[in-house]
Structures are given as C-alpha cells and as structure tokens.
Amino acid sequence: MDEPLVRWDWIARNWDNGGPTSVKVLLENHIVMAFVPVVVGLLIAIPLGLACARYRWLYQPTVGIMNIVYSLPSLALFSILLSVTGLTQTTVIIPLTLFSLAVLIPAVVDGMKSVPDHVRQSAVAMGFQPYKRLMKVELPIAVPVVLAGLRVAAVSSISLVSVGALIGQGGLGYLFIDGWQRQFYTPIVVGIVLVVALALVADFVIIVAQRLLTPWARRSA
C-alpha cells in the first residue's frame, strides 16, 4: 500500500467545501454535541451534588445509579434513543449528558467534602448565612475538585461524540466512517488529530478557568 497517511491537498480541499461534510462544519457540530452535555451536566450536577453532600442518605444511591449509567456503552444508548429522538443531535447529547453527570456529581460531592470543617465553622462564627456561606466560602474552596471532574467529563465527551457517527450524528466521527468506507487514511488521521486537539484545548481552557477562579492558590504557590 503506497497510500500516504496524510494527503495534505485533501485537507485543503475539504476544510471548507460548502457541503454538510466539510471538516469545518463537522468540527462545529462536534463542538456543539460535546459542549452542551458538559454544560448541562454541570448545571444539573451542582444542585444534585450539593443535595447529596447535605443529605448523606442521598449519596450512596445516587453514586450507585451513576456507576451503572457510566457502565452503559454509548453506542447502545444512542441506538435505544434513536427510536425516541430520531436522527438528531439530541440522540447523542442526552447519553453524553448522563455520562457527564456520572462524573460531575461525585466531583461536586467530593469538592464539598474538601472544605475543611474549621473553615466552615469559622464562616458560621463570622455570621455567614447558609446561602452566602455556600457562595462565598464553600463553593470557591470546592472549585479545584469540581474542575478536576469537569476536565474528565469534557475530554471524555469530546472523544465519545465520534461514536455517534455510527448512528449518523458524530461530528468529526463522520471522517472515520468516510475513511473506512473508502479505505482512505487521511480523513481518519485528520479526525483523530482534531478530536485530540479539541480535547487538549478544552482541558487547557478549564485549567485557565481554575487559575482565574482560585487566585489564592496562585499567590501561595
């Protein structure tokens, strides 16, 4: 086989060829399908995680359910949802949101557990009301642990979207199918590189966000 791994002219021609499968469009779809689950997941995980941290009896069953959810193969979930939501991006977004939740809820709970008891008591002694204490003291301290979970959720989500290509909604995953059907390496390599690059960018953005949200950590370091 003399086919080179990457044909650069293919990339130049297909980056933005105006069609629905130009690399640029696939990349945009990929970002939407990976990003929405993580954001929605975080928005749901924060209140649920706080509830679990507050009411201990909620924690074990929630983690148990999340463990089970996390063990479900993405392709199976996509296929089952296909009958409900059809060939839309929602079919990919819903399972990925569940996977994000499975990572983020334990992260929020662990984050709240990482708040030292003496800090919490000091806040009470200083007259912080529960809501203010949560917003001004507990959540900021929980940020590093929550964001560590968010990094895992974001990177996994970005890589899992491509499986959706098997049900016709996979963003960059389409390139894998395309390359396989035509026995053509270039789209596959482009797809892998872009997915990994996207994951690295997301990871980097979250690290920067963490530095901005926890300025005290920078000062002491």
């Binding site: 990177v155 890589s159 491509s162 995953g173 396989w180 390496y185 797809g191 997915v195």
Partner: peptide, 19 residues
C-alpha cells in the same frame, strides 16, 4: 491516562484495522 480519555475509540479502531 490522558491519551485514554482523549483518543476517539472509533477512529483508532478504523485506522489500526485499515493499517
């Protein structure tokens, strides 16, 4: 650890099997 999370399974499979 990082590679495991970021590498797209389907892409890796298709590429290795083609190669």
């Amino acid at each position: 650890a990082n590679a495991a999370r970021a590498l797209p399974t389907l892409g890796l499979l298709v590429l290795v099997v083609l190669l």
